[in-house]
Design a protein around this nucleic acid. Sequence first.
DNA 1: TAGTTACGTAACAAGCAAGGTACATAGATC
DNA 2: GATCTATGTACCTTGCTTGTTACGTAACTA
Lengths: 108, 108
Amino acid sequence: MDAILQALADPSRRTVLRSLRDGPATVTELAAQLPIARPGVSRHLRVLREAGLVEVEHQAQFRLYRLRPEPLAELDEWLGDYRALWQQRFDALHTEVARGKKQRKGKG
Amino acid sequence: MDAILQALADPSRRTVLRSLRDGPATVTELAAQLPIARPGVSRHLRVLREAGLVEVEHQAQFRLYRLRPEPLAELDEWLGDYRALWQQRFDALHTEVARGKKQRKGKG
DNA sequence: TAGTTACGTAACAAGCAAGGTACATAGATC
DNA sequence: GATCTATGTACCTTGCTTGTTACGTAACTA
């Protein structure tokens, strides 16, 4: 949980994640979309990998980085502990639907 | 969005938020639950306040800090762009529901 | 008014994070 | 084997973050 939020706290890393939503990409491709040099992107990708948010596939001398959404589900679960608090303020009916979802996940 | 994730990245601040789920609290009360001194907690609360995650009520010489869940709803929306990705892996039917919500919110 | 309580902020030290440059490594190509 | 491409890492610098202590301020109490 700590590693996930730590990884998401950096805007460059969030940009990387958003790019990877469109599909896997190499470091060079990702660096082209950021205002920082490749070594910096490599570093960001390491943080993302250690947080489990991306995975690497070795393709010849390339590294294909792919999004791994599972940790975000963990963050979603964490958020769930607070979700009722803001949903109370917006839409009571909506809250019922959300609680149905929560029960299926069996959050503790 | 940046301020929210920045605020949540620190474990001490997440502890503060969790404490505030049980109801409003003073700085001294919050500091008692953390391994850091009151001035540090004051600083953390400032970050949380600037991110909109807490609000203060002046009660005599006390400051009553209260949780403000709205920014977490914003984070939830951000997560929504990724939610379909992990739900695909869990439950295809569920994904349909999520996409319905996304369309209604019209996130770009 | 003097003293106490609760709190914020200023000033300072220590640590970490993020960026860049230089370099090492692995695979493809010739 | 030499060279080019793609990438990771080491090293250095810089700036923010976090924590502490010292101090200033506002409100209650006597």
